[in-house]
Design a protein around this nucleic acid. Structure first.
Lengths: 135, 135
DNA sequence: TTGATGTATTGACAAGTATCAATCTCTTGG
DNA sequence: CCAAGAGATTGATACTTGTCAATACATCAA
């Protein structure tokens, strides 16, 4: 049973069992699909886990301040004290702390507290994961 | 003139000209700074342009649906019709169109309309820029 | 031309978030 | 112990954004 045109479809849909009707509709769907694109298997490429993880990283880098912080830490290398970052941004201390926390929550940076100070550095592991996702 | 301790600072601040006072305060600031971290030059690493561009890309990938779309297109390679993407997501058509537009606005994907259909594909150039930023 | 179909746009609303002021916690120096 | 300082947390507010329903636009088929 082949369906070639919509008019054929209308004919084919008359006076058939529900099962047959479903088959006809499915075939018509396939036909319509084939008009715009070959039957490429796209569903096999869905990986919700990797995508949501990538989205989490994207969220962390979605703010200009955080992108700047990340860039700064990456290019500087090693640890940087928050008190050293603060004068570079026209932000209140809680806001800067908030952004650094977001970066740390996304595991893009690591934080280590020593005495009164908090030192931030790039988390190389997460950076590698991000690069791997893009390859 | 060297400032060694806060008590020295108080002494140094008494009965001096505003200019001298400013110099003393600046030196004290430097002293305090040196307690937590060496005088590393951090300001030279700021690049607002690159950071804001990175933030734009991050924004585009900050949503799970868009990260999934990007991943899908990247792993599939070549063009994919929107009508082929639609059944993979439990979203209304306007919402899917909205997400694809955001990806296109960020130049992460390219779009070409042929007839009634819109074909989306990865923009390799932007992908390379993103990878370069992470290296 | 007319109807159907794939896609884009608009308007509205709910959820999320960047920011600040105020406050709290923890550590150090005296 | 006490006071000061670095950083984190909380609460409030303005702004952004993801989502859908309704609608508009463009193209193809008859």
């Amino acid at each position: 049973m082949a369906v070639a045109t919509p008019s054929d479809l209308a004919e084919a849909l008359s006076a058939v069992s529900p099962a047959e009707r479903r088959a006809v509709l499915q075939e018509a769907e396939q036909l319509r699909r084939d008009q715009c694109c070959g039957g490429s298997s796209l569903a096999e490429h869905i990986d919700p886990g990797a995508a949501s993880q990538a989205a989490a990283i994207g969220k962390a880098l979605a703010d200009p301040v955080r992108a700047q912080l990340f860039d700064l830490l990456r290019r500087h290398g090693g640890e940087v004290c928050q008190c050293e970052l603060s004068p570079l941004f026209e932000l209140t201390q809680p806001t800067l702390s908030h952004h650094l926390r977001k970066l740390a929550d996304a595991r893009l940076v690591s934080v280590e507290r020593r005495g009164r100070w908090a030192y931030y550095s790039i988390n190389a592991e997460a950076l590698d994961e991000l690069r791997a996702w893009l390859s």
